[in-house]
Simulated scan of single mutants.
Amino acid sequence: MKRFLTFDVALLFLRVTASVLVLLVHGLPKAIHYTSQLEAIEDPFHLGKTLTLGCAIFAEVVCPLLMIAGIATRLAALPIMVVCVVALGFVHREWTLGEAQFAWMLLIMFGTIAIGGAGRYRIALPRFVQRQA
Score class of each variant (00 low, 15 high):
residue 86 V to D: 06
residue 41 I to R: 00
residue 132 Q to E: 09
residue 37 Q to W: 15
residue 15 R to K: 04
residue 19 S to R: 01
residue 45 F to D: 11
residue 46 H to R: 14
residue 14 L to M: 00
residue 76 A to Y: 12
residue 74 R to A: 04
residue 78 L to K: 10
residue 52 T to C: 10
residue 25 V to K: 12
residue 133 A to G: 14
residue 115 I to P: 09
residue 88 L to V: 13
residue 55 C to K: 12
residue 56 A to L: 06
residue 125 L to I: 10
residue 125 L to V: 00
residue 81 M to L: 01
residue 16 V to C: 01
residue 53 L to A: 08
residue 33 H to F: 13
residue 111 G to E: 07
residue 30 K to C: 01
residue 77 A to L: 01
residue 127 R to P: 05
residue 47 L to C: 02
residue 86 V to S: 05
residue 68 I to N: 00
residue 13 F to A: 15
residue 133 A to C: 11
residue 69 A to C: 04
residue 106 L to F: 08
residue 4 F to I: 10
residue 92 H to K: 13
residue 72 A to G: 13
residue 66 L to Q: 06
residue 129 V to S: 04
residue 97 L to H: 11
residue 81 M to E: 01
residue 63 C to H: 01
residue 10 A to P: 04
residue 105 M to S: 14
residue 41 I to Q: 12
residue 90 F to I: 07
residue 34 Y to L: 14
residue 71 I to T: 09
residue 112 T to C: 04
residue 29 P to G: 02
residue 126 P to H: 03
residue 17 T to W: 09
residue 43 D to R: 00
residue 1 M to F: 09
residue 86 V to Q: 00
residue 45 F to I: 02
residue 101 Q to V: 09
residue 34 Y to F: 15
residue 94 E to N: 14
residue 37 Q to K: 03
residue 65 L to V: 11
residue 87 A to D: 03
residue 125 L to W: 06
residue 44 P to E: 07
residue 46 H to C: 05
residue 2 K to E: 12
residue 117 G to F: 05
residue 129 V to C: 03
residue 18 A to S: 15
residue 97 L to A: 15
residue 89 G to I: 09
residue 50 T to S: 12
residue 47 L to G: 11
residue 73 T to Y: 04
residue 115 I to L: 15
residue 22 V to Q: 08
residue 64 P to I: 02
residue 18 A to D: 05
residue 32 I to R: 08
residue 31 A to M: 12
residue 98 G to E: 13
residue 18 A to K: 00
residue 108 I to A: 15
residue 34 Y to T: 11
residue 109 M to P: 05
residue 55 C to R: 05
residue 58 F to N: 06
residue 63 C to N: 04
residue 106 L to I: 04
residue 58 F to D: 10
residue 85 V to C: 08
residue 121 Y to S: 03
residue 33 H to Q: 07
residue 49 K to A: 10
residue 110 F to I: 00
residue 94 E to H: 15
residue 87 A to W: 07
residue 88 L to M: 15
residue 75 L to Q: 11
residue 5 L to I: 12
residue 129 V to A: 12
residue 47 L to P: 07
residue 118 A to H: 06
residue 97 L to W: 15
residue 99 E to G: 13
residue 78 L to I: 13
residue 77 A to H: 09
residue 83 V to M: 09
residue 80 I to Q: 09
residue 87 A to N: 09
residue 88 L to Q: 05
residue 55 C to T: 12
residue 125 L to G: 01
residue 128 F to R: 03
residue 1 M to Q: 11
residue 58 F to C: 11
residue 89 G to S: 10
residue 57 I to L: 08
